[in-house]
């Protein structure tokens, strides 16, 4: 999706992906809580917290020089795209250490809800070509329903494939689509950990 919407709260503007992601995190948390144990949603919100904190403060690493010159940079900025990568790395490390405590079904739901939810909300908040919006909306919904109806390794891999198709259609280059790249990594990791358990 091209980002066409920017929102403002008070003296600050923020782009639509932030809104989409926050909504996705909240909805996913609620759904995990209602479908699975408290542990699943607690683990999910731990990851969300790690993600946001590392993303925000990674500006110290990504813009080290500027932070030294102007310490307030930490307040104004975040780590940007590199920050998202670093934040995801932190989440993966955290997840790796807790992998034995995961329920596969809950993990599959979490991945599917986060990725499909984000894509769907991005369609709703931004204004892109209609055919791109419609296919993104349609395929994301099908992929999500497929996983939540039957959370197996096969459906999760299918989910990954469907989102690859969505990624190909977007007006943004594949390598720039972090949401899709992170979905692959998360899926592969969860599938691998599940196989190890058996």
């Amino acid at each position: 999706m091209n980002i066409t919407a920017i929102y403002s709260i008070g003296k600050m503007s923020f782009p639509s992906p932030w809104l989409a992601l926050v909504l996705t995190f909240i909805l996913t948390g609620i759904i995990l809580r209602s479908q699975f144990s408290k542990t699943a949603s607690a683990q999910y919100s731990d990851f969300v917290l790690t993600f946001i904190l590392v993303w925000k403060f990674s500006v110290i690493l990504t813009d080290f020089k500027m932070v030294l010159q102007q310490p307030l940079t930490i307040l104004y900025f975040n780590g940007g795209k590199l920050g998202v990568v670093l934040a995801s790395l932190a989440v993966f490390v955290q997840a790796y250490r807790k992998r034995a405590t995961f329920s596969f079904a809950a993990s599959a739901w979490a991945i599917a809800l986060t990725q499909s939810g984000y894509q769907i909300i991005m369609v709703l908040v931004n204004d892109n070509a209609q055919w791109i919006e419609l296919t993104t909306l349609f395929i994301s919904s099908i992929a999500l329903l497929m996983v939540v109806r039957k959370p197996t390794i096969a459906t999760l891999q299918g989910f990954m494939g469907l989102h690859f198709i969505i990624a190909l259609l977007q007006p943004v280059a594949l390598t720039q689509q972090l949401s899709w790249l992170l979905t692959i990594v998360a899926t592969l990791a969860v599938v691998k950990w599940q196989k190890e358990l058996k």
């Binding site: 769907i120 329903l145 939540v148």
Partner: peptide
Amino acid sequence: GMLLIVALLVIA
């Protein structure tokens, strides 16, 4: 959870 998802998709 399933019901919630379906409801949200319909809303979307």
